[in-house]
């Protein structure tokens, strides 16, 4: 198993090394600029975002004991989007990336807390958590739409560019912003692999085994929300990574968080770098938002997963 984890790491290293060169480079100084200022940051941000989204997905699926629970279905992504949009509406979004992340984290944490609290207090069946998450997502999205209607033209334009989920950027601002947040978020989640395994077998059982259930829940959901918020704030909501990657990883690594979490993080990074490559090369001369690619791959995968689960 550790060897397979190593293979995923190798895959990521290869994607990071090759992706910036794919599609060729203009000759001379322009080539250097494209490589260093455009492609490299784009690939690195793609890896960071893919890593954090897939890891958050694995954590959510474990904590809610449901393979369809992800930041997107639990309301976290919608919350982050609302927070980020509020930042645009208040005019902090464009100028202050840390403010943008802060707003997004506030939204993500609030929405996760709603879903998490509902899951914790009612003796909900595991499927009910999804319904709560979807309700939270819909309610938050309604707020987002309302906010868009009220926002002024400039904020709207900034938000619209962002709302599709895209990775193109110039320079390393995004890398420097995301790297520490993603690392912190990942560290918090990975450190809880053992209590998460116990939680898989049921909350009351885990509690009787010595797991401080509420604290684990708050820390892991909070850590995941931080990563998701940073990713959503910088790139916009990118769908299906958190759903698709952990479920695919589970087929090869099993469901034990000790392996599932790091494997999802590595695979997610490679996956999004690959998807972004497709987005960049699919229409020569035009840019496809990477969210289009992940959704195009993720939606059929989701259907296949539901069918497989119900059989």
């Amino acid at each position: 198993m550790t060897a397979r984890l190593g293979l995923l790491g190798l895959l990521l290293a290869v994607s990071l090394a090759l992706a910036p060169f794919a599609g060729g480079l203009p000759a001379g100084d322009a080539g250097d600029f494209v490589l260093v200022q455009l492609r490299l940051p784009r690939v690195l941000v793609g890896a960071l975002v893919g890593c954090t989204l897939a890891l958050a997905g694995a954590s959510f699926q474990t904590i809610f004991r449901n393979p369809l629970a992800t930041p997107s279905t639990a309301g976290t992504t919608a919350g982050a989007a609302l927070g980020a949009l509020s930042a645009f509406a208040f005019g902090v979004g464009q100028e202050h990336p840390w403010g943008l992340v802060g707003f997004a984290f506030l939204g993500a944490a609030l929405a996760s807390a709603l879903t998490g609290a509902a899951a914790a207090r009612g003796r909900l069946r595991d499927d009910d958590v999804l319904l709560v998450g979807i309700a939270v997502t819909l309610a938050v999205s309604a707020l987002t739409t309302g906010l868009q209607a009220a926002a002024d033209e400039g904020a709207l334009a900034a938000a619209a560019r962002w709302s599709l989920g895209r990775l193109p950027q110039v320079g390393f601002e995004g890398v420097l912003l995301l790297a520490p947040l993603v690392a912190l978020s990942a560290a918090v989640q990975l450190a809880h692999a053992r209590p998460l395994t116990a939680l898989l077998l049921g909350e009351e059982r885990a509690s009787s085994q010595g797991v401080a259930v509420s604290r684990v829940r708050v820390l892991v959901l909070g850590g995941a929300a931080l990563g998701v918020a940073a990713a959503v704030a910088w790139c916009g909501p990118i769908a299906f990574v958190g759903l698709l990657v952990p479920n695919a990883v589970r087929l090869g690594f099993g469901g034990a968080p000790r392996l599932l979490l790091p494997a999802s993080a590595l695979a997610g990074a490679s996956f999004l770098v690959g998807c972004d490559l497709l987005a960049r090369l699919a229409l020569p001369g035009r840019e496809l938002p990477v969210g289009v690619i992940t959704a195009a791959l993720g939606a059929p995968a989701l259907v296949a997963l539901i069918v497989r689960r119900r059989r």
Partner: peptide
């Protein structure tokens, strides 16, 4: 007994 998938 819990219904859990993916653990040995």
């Amino acid at each position: 007994p819990p219904s859990v998938e993916g653990l040995t």
